[in-house]
Simulated assay, not measured.
Amino acid sequence: MASESPSPAATAGAVVAQRTTAEQEADQNAVDDAQYRKDWYRKNASITEWAYRTLVILQLAFAAAVPVSAAARAPEWVAALFGGIAAVLTGAQQTLGLGQEYVRLNATHVRIDRELRLHRALAGPYASAEAPAQLLATRVEDIVAEDTTRWSARPGKGRTSARPGQATPPACRVWAGFSAWA
């Protein structure tokens, strides 16, 4: 009687069983790093979106206060003050580029999230990869490097580092000075 060859699932199980603890830790580190980066982008995208929306709402409120103060016959300086504040807020919005920053950060978050989902399902490029975790690490690093290049090409980019001794990551420039977020 001919011997049966082992099923693909049994073969995969044997390969997993032969892996060393160091290899398993390296795989887990790759997944943890990708998750950390995804969370970092999500957090900074949320902060940037909040700052952008707050700035726009304040702009609208102060701009709307100009005709209201005139109609209420407030002193002229009140309308001028409201108009000046609205102008400064408009300038800040343009200078900081929070709308574009939010879009960039959120897009990178979504791309990293997609890679994590494909990796977990062993789908897409991970289905046939010999080392799915290493492929995940490489693909996430490529996404972050591409984002860093886009971020550094922006005029007036930030120059602070999120962690001392590390290269400057793409960060929400507005909040780079706050240690809680940088």
Rank of each mutant, 00 (worst) to 15 (best):
R111D: 02
G83N: 01
A72I: 04
A131K: 14
A65H: 03
P164Q: 03
W50N: 12
G156S: 03
V68A: 07
A176C: 10
T160C: 02
G158E: 03
A34T: 04
V140A: 06
L96T: 09
R73E: 06
T148V: 02
K43S: 01
E23T: 00
V110K: 12
A74M: 04
S46V: 02
Q134W: 04
L58R: 09
G13K: 05
A162I: 03
A167D: 14
W77L: 07
P132F: 04
Q18D: 15
A17F: 12
S128T: 14
L89M: 06
E23V: 00
A180H: 10
V140T: 03
S152R: 09
T168P: 01
R114C: 11
F178A: 07
P132K: 01
K157H: 06
A86W: 02
A123H: 06
Q24R: 11
L118V: 12
P170E: 02
W50F: 03
A127Q: 13
L55N: 08
Q24N: 10
E4R: 14
E76M: 05
A65M: 06
E4I: 06
L116A: 04
P164I: 00
N44M: 04
W181L: 10
P164N: 02
G13T: 09
L81H: 01
L116I: 12
I57G: 04
P155T: 14
A34M: 06
A127S: 13
G91F: 08
G165H: 14
G84Y: 07
G91Y: 04
P8G: 13
R19C: 08
A131Y: 06
A65I: 03
A182S: 14
A34D: 13
A71Y: 06
A80C: 01
H109E: 15
E4S: 15
A129T: 09
V174L: 15
V103D: 06
A64W: 04
A10C: 12
R150L: 04
S128K: 12
Q18R: 13
A74K: 01
L60R: 00
Q18S: 15
A12K: 15
S7L: 10
W77R: 08
Y36A: 14
W181S: 07
A133Q: 10
V16A: 11
T20N: 07
A30R: 05
S128A: 12
G165I: 05
V56M: 08
L122C: 11
T90V: 06
T95S: 09
R73Y: 00
R117I: 12
A63W: 05
E141C: 11
Q59R: 10
G83I: 00
R173K: 11
Y52W: 05
P164Y: 00
E25C: 01
G13L: 15
R159N: 08
C172W: 09
I143E: 04
R104C: 07
Q24D: 10
E146P: 03
A123D: 15
V68Q: 05
I57W: 13
T54G: 11
Q94W: 01
A2T: 03
A129D: 11
A133E: 01
A176I: 13
